[in-house]
Design a protein around this nucleic acid. Structure first.
Lengths: 124, 124, 124, 124
DNA sequence: GTGGTCTAGACCACC
DNA sequence: GTGGTCTAGACCACG
């Protein structure tokens, strides 16, 4: 369910955060369903519980999950969060397009690339 | 010419590298023109000369500039580098588009956004 | 009668204690009336009986209720407790006012806010 | 400058956060001035650097400070943040007033208390 | 069993 | 020197 890429330059906890955000936004993890416990996930990924803890903390702060002492952590997703996430993604995309424009990549190529991805099967 | 954003989370040397890459790729800095000396630039930006040194070293490694002992650093741009940079930019863009697809942003919106940026005046 | 907010960061037993204190102080629960049994309340709220037990224990320690073995728990309210609770509330309020003063909120605004609440319909 | 109260039930990192928020909001720490380094403050308070780190992380997230790798952490305060903090404080205060109303504390007593604090010398 | 806090100590990137 | 990440292991509060 969660895969850690040690070659990735980003810290582990960030990879975990992003992965869960994805799973929640895409509806794979349903609202109020329980996440793996901090200790279990740590064991499964063979990393330190503190690292998981930190990821969960951040996810809770961002509103993706909520944690209850003694019970566990649960998905807490809503529409607002989705549109927030969409806005965030759009901003990144616009920066990328601007960069493409900046290095003289023709608009047609960008458009083609967008089409290819949307038509294609890539679901990441 | 170079602006450092201390609130930017990326390291200073990386900001400098990116800025010079931009200036070179976009032709603002012409091939074989001289870059500011390490010492001067360091003074101007009031940062540690080591940081500039590191940025120049990396730019040289990537082929954007070349250094001549005792004379300074010079722009060394060519077509290969442009296409390399373009490829890099395209990869980032594709990731961004995939992310957009992932959070259910419709293709039309992405295409519209691309158009807006290419038609618009944004040159960053 | 009792509502548990799992997204509330405070522990469940504390939420229960506070709720009963409120109901007793405000006279909704009359002196010597019987509280729901530990087991029943636990079932109703679908939480662990230990949690209810702990809340009742604490309420008894504070003097809000008394338990009779084999019969159940009963409200035991008196004037002393009211003034105790009032003192506690006043302390919290004073801290809040000090904080308001600390962040440069003008006294008039605080006074107005107090008036609004006392005139208003809010009974929580 | 920072005092830790071990009898306080709140975690240490939270006490540190609140203290710095106070110092910044009240203008004792001026914008762009440097905070004590993580290690130094940890030594001074004889607590673990990780605990300080966590406090600084949270302060950065909230916008009170910004950190630069290799340089240190700096105050980053602005008007928006003040009004945000004020709003937060007002909400707490309103809850406290409602509680006071709930336990039959007369409005006059509350108003008197507010006056006393604003007239008084308490600066906390 | 669960999450939350803290310590001790390590290593990294950066300046 | 600085902040940032991670590990290992402890203890607490809660259910």
């Amino acid at each position: 369910m969660i895969i850690i890429d040690y070659k990735d330059r980003r810290p582990i906890y960030e990879q975990i955060i992003e992965r869960f955000q994805d799973l929640i936004v895409k509806g794979v993890l349903k609202p109020d369903s329980q996440l793996p416990s901090v200790r279990n996930l740590a064991m499964e990924l063979s990393i330190n519980p503190n690292t998981i803890q930190r990821a969960y903390m951040e996810l809770e702060r961002q509103g993706f999950i909520y944690s209850v002492k003694g019970r566990g952590s649960f998905v807490s997703f809503n529409e607002e969060l989705l549109s927030l996430k969409q806005k965030e993604v759009m901003e990144k995309l616009q920066k990328a397009v601007e960069a493409a424009k900046g290095v003289q990549i023709p608009e047609e190529e960008v458009q083609k690339s967008v089409k290819r991805i949307y038509r294609g099967e890539e679901m990441k």
